[in-house]
Design a protein around this nucleic acid. Sequence first.
DNA 1: TTATAATTTGACAGTAACTATCAAAAGACA
DNA 2: TGTCTTTTGATAGTTACTGTCAAATTATAA
Lengths: 185, 185
Amino acid sequence: MPPDDKRTMGLRERKKAKTMAAVQMHALRLFRELGYNATTVEQIAEAAEISPSTFFRYFPTKEDVLLKDNYDPVLVDAFEAQPSDLNPLQAMRGAMVSAIANMSADELATMRERNQLIMTVPELRAAALNNLTQTMQLIAELAAKRTGREPDDAAVRTFAGAVIGVNISMRNIRMRTSLNCWTKR
Amino acid sequence: MPPDDKRTMGLRERKKAKTMAAVQMHALRLFRELGYNATTVEQIAEAAEISPSTFFRYFPTKEDVLLKDNYDPVLVDAFEAQPSDLNPLQAMRGAMVSAIANMSADELATMRERNQLIMTVPELRAAALNNLTQTMQLIAELAAKRTGREPDDAAVRTFAGAVIGVNISMRNIRMRTSLNCWTKR
DNA sequence: TTATAATTTGACAGTAACTATCAAAAGACA
DNA sequence: TGTCTTTTGATAGTTACTGTCAAATTATAA
């Protein structure tokens, strides 16, 4: 499933993908310039030349315009590509290292900016943490498959929780490194 | 510092504490009866016989009416009461076990109901997770004190993150046990 | 190419969570 | 009692978000 195969992807879907990307781009720019709270959905819609109603058709909430990403499948692939004699913790470590190593400098920079914005704006941070519970479930399933246990197994879920928690604590370190706050409301 | 010493606590503060408790009680009842989203702040205010503006004076957001609790100081006390030859993980385990053992059946039941409501309503879950980052910082400070390291130490923060993550995963298990959803909107 | 069906869009009208302000009411204290 | 401070309620916003429906756009078949 290639992300944007222009042959198989009718004009409709291509246009949709394009406006979606445009909206996200303008949103990120406006958030940077005005602050997250001070930027209204109306402004984003106007910048991207769509109507506010269309904005909410693409993104159920204002937060989602920043939060929608595709890191989970990348992590899954990297995890399953790890040698099968590694235990879940070793495999998770290897997966994260290789996933980061495979990103371009540009992607890393964008990720950093996005993460900083997310961790400094309370609403965004809350929504992002909420999303992490899905990732936790995903990690539980990966660990379950690798160990032959059930995803509901207490040890499996504890492992997934610990991984997520450590992940959060790492993001927090980055947050505290730079103190400028983006909310200017 | 006794919670409600009627001698030292002038009429003003006593009244404030009473209306605050009343608002929380009515809110929880209405959430149970109507669902979280279907209950408006106006309804809660009317039930508690205050004006909507007063509601927001007590609770900055609708979520806070459910989320405000005092578990952190309890955990701190229990942690610091653990024998000093235990390592942070052992001490944390002992602290949590003793904190739960010291709760009455009523308190436990209320906590369960509250937790279930929180984990099944997305907005509440997001806000609750957000609050957990403060608890994470707290745990980092406790672990730092016990080990003689700094709270910013990578190992200390990783420990705190893992504790929080496992905590989240435990709540999720409870959530999945009962499937009825409180949002009836 | 043209007609028709399916999808996407924009305009409009609403709801509800918040915010700011300011005068009135209630508690504190002399 | 009288005055000073704190708390409250009323009022009027702003903004995120929802629902509906007709117009515009794209896909499909004749």
